[in-house]
Amino acid sequence: MSRLARREARTGYLLLAPSLLGVGLFLILPVFVVLSLSLQQWNLISPARWVGLDNFRSILSDPDVRNSVLVTSLFVLIVIPVQTVLGLAAALLLNRRLPGSNLFRVVYVIPWICAPLTLGVVWRWIFDPSDGALNALLGQRIEWLSSTTLALPAVAAVAVWSQVGYVTLFFLAGLNAIPAELYEAARMDGADGRRVFWHLTLPLLRPTTFFVLVTGVISSFQVFDTVYAMTRGGPAGRTDVIAARIYHEAFEAFRLGRAAALAVLLFVLLVVVTLAQQLYFRRRITYDLS
């Protein structure tokens, strides 16, 4: 390596140092802390004790944990298709550049910019059984957040509402990257709008779709703030997502070891789900537009 190259490398690392330090301190280190905590029993106050795989054994046989895995999966299954389809639809509409598109582009993203906890509190007011805006509008009393059937869909609806703008933004960018000549060529060959969408737009958006799905699934599996603000995991555990259970174990029950074991479980779940998504998309052709 020449002296110049070495000096450049040094400058490069120097510039990287602040963010590397951040990643190391707040991402990499906590990962190892959590891994080691998952093998201990600790209540934050008394000294911690090594317990081997006991925490994993106890969470895997815990019906509440099974419930929270089920609830989280249901939540993801509701949120992901709805937000992806709605996001794509909104992007297609905005892409037509009708008057006012720019305004709506901003409006859609506002909920995504706001803090989920605040939104959760606002939505709890809207869903309030007696004084809530929604019931006032409907003219009847529906106990949204204490109903065992409606609570999860209600929370999922809020999650979709807050994330759809983010999905829309990515699809918009994806649509912009498709060269206009392709559309012209398709039209010249006599393809109607539906055929263009299914055979041109959708396949060319595949990388965007992949990205949106992977990040969406991950963030939905980790959902916490919205749930915490709206239902705290209730009623009767029907919205008790994994992250809410981790919080409960760590900071309400003060069983840090079990909480860490749960976090590891969530991690493994996410790796499996993401690998499955990747396999699915890899089997399909991605077009190089560059």
């Binding site: 980790q222 981790i246 860490a260 976090a263």
Partner: peptide
């Protein structure tokens, strides 16, 4: 990206 996102999941507990 996956690694970063997944580690974020773990970091949640800490």
């Amino acid at each position: 990206r996956l690694f970063v996102a997944a580690t974020a999941a773990l970091a949640l507990a800490a």
